[in-house]
Simulated assay, not measured.
Amino acid sequence: MRNILLKYLIAVGMLIGLPLLGIALADIPLRIYLTFPPKTGYIIHAPFSWPAFIGLSIFILIVTIPFILQWVKAGALIKPGQLKSYPFPWWGWIGVVAGLMAWTLAWTRFPWFARFQQHTFILLWLSYIVVVNALTYRRKGTCMITARPGFFLLLFPASAVFWWFFEYLNRFVQNWDYIGVSFSPWEYFRHASLSFSTVLPAVLGTREWLSGSFRIKERFKSFIPLYFIKSRALALIVLMISGVSLLCIGLWPNYLFPLVWVSPLLVIVSLQILSGEFHLFSDTVKGDWVFVVSSALAALICGCFWEMWNYYSLAKWEYSIPFVHGFKIFEMPILGYAGYIPFGLQCAAIGNILENLFLQNKEAT
């Protein structure tokens, strides 16, 4: 247990300390990055660039096309009728009704609801979490809420901490900021933490539902094997490059902003490979991509709901993405949705860590 904690303390130290160290070494005042609630406007973002947009689009297509082709590939599939299904639970219908009510309240401006208008995000996502668990129960006969209630509840405080870390990294790139409401520091922390607490339960709940998909199982159980993923030398190189990049993220935010979504995953997985632990990509050595694909798709699905529900809400966020800020779907530039893919993998990696720690603690007691 001590070695595990040490390893993750190293990861946290790198992810939190290196961006600040880079700013300090460049003799840039740290206070503007540590103001709370966070202030925006101290980073000038690069304007839209067609070469950058086209180049990033090509890169995204190169990465995703093999998976898309595998998804649509002709061949025998288990017919849905061959799979056992279970009744949709009664509490799932409560989630559906609550979600529709919360959605209506989020996108309207009833005078009698004005006092609570800024809190609709948490209502929407609690409803979503209940519904996606109900869908999982209907597909599998079990779900996190019914089978692992302790772990399910643990995800909420862990999720708040998890997303606060991304808020911290965003200070060095300022790719999003919040508008529509104004809070004191304590109110901001309290309100934001409640909203952030729904991220992991939503993404991991969606992944659990997707992992029972017959199409994902059939298509990605035997896919491209990544033999090199076991290489400790490669893991060390990736860890070193990630460290240097994090050191520089605040110095060149227009070029290194994707690290917000990639660096935590690279650091965590690299450390796990170096210590010989099971990690997110372990099964890909034998070509099994079910866990990876379902995790990425889960975040992409949640991302679509995040952006949609955000669009007409009172308390909302806006984006400023260097070079590719164009062709928006809701508030998000279209290429920005690609960021949800590595984000889903990070959620899965953190979920695995939490589940292992939870099980170890349960066994110890």
Rank of each mutant, 00 (worst) to 15 (best):
L266F: 13
I301Q: 13
P37A: 13
P157M: 06
I241W: 02
S294R: 03
W306F: 07
F305M: 14
W252L: 14
L226P: 00
I60D: 14
W306V: 01
D27I: 02
G17R: 10
M332V: 07
A364S: 15
M332N: 07
L246P: 11
A364M: 11
I321F: 04
F116E: 14
F323W: 12
K73G: 11
I224H: 13
P322A: 06
N3F: 10
C347N: 09
I329T: 05
M240P: 03
V262C: 13
R138S: 15
C248K: 11
L274S: 00
M101C: 07
F53R: 02
V292Y: 00
A114F: 03
S182I: 08
I341R: 00
C347G: 06
P264L: 08
I129R: 03
K316H: 12
P333R: 08
L135G: 02
S282M: 09
W93V: 06
F343Q: 00
L354V: 05
S282I: 05
V267Y: 02
F151W: 10
C143L: 05
G351M: 02
I122R: 04
S85Q: 09
T136M: 02
F113K: 06
I43V: 07
V97K: 00
F257T: 02
I54G: 01
N352S: 10
I58H: 07
N170V: 04
N170C: 01
T365V: 14
A348H: 05
L21D: 00
R2Y: 04
N356A: 11
I23Y: 11
Y128L: 09
F152H: 15
S213Y: 07
H45V: 03
N356H: 12
F116L: 14
G17I: 09
A98T: 03
F278Y: 15
S320C: 06
S211T: 12
V132K: 09
I350D: 11
A24H: 14
W176G: 05
E318F: 13
N361A: 13
P89T: 01
S242R: 02
P225S: 01
Q70R: 15
L20R: 07
Y337E: 04
Y188M: 10
F278K: 15
G205V: 02
R190I: 13
R115Q: 13
L18R: 02
V12T: 14
I43P: 05
N361R: 09
Y128H: 01
L18S: 04
G150Y: 02
S57D: 07
I129N: 05
K79L: 03
S85C: 08
T108E: 11
L200M: 07
W103C: 06
L154R: 14
G205C: 02
F166K: 05
G55V: 12
F156H: 02
Y178I: 08
Q82E: 14
F36P: 06
P264T: 12
I216F: 13
E363Y: 09
T64A: 15
V244H: 07
L359C: 02
S159D: 04
F278H: 15
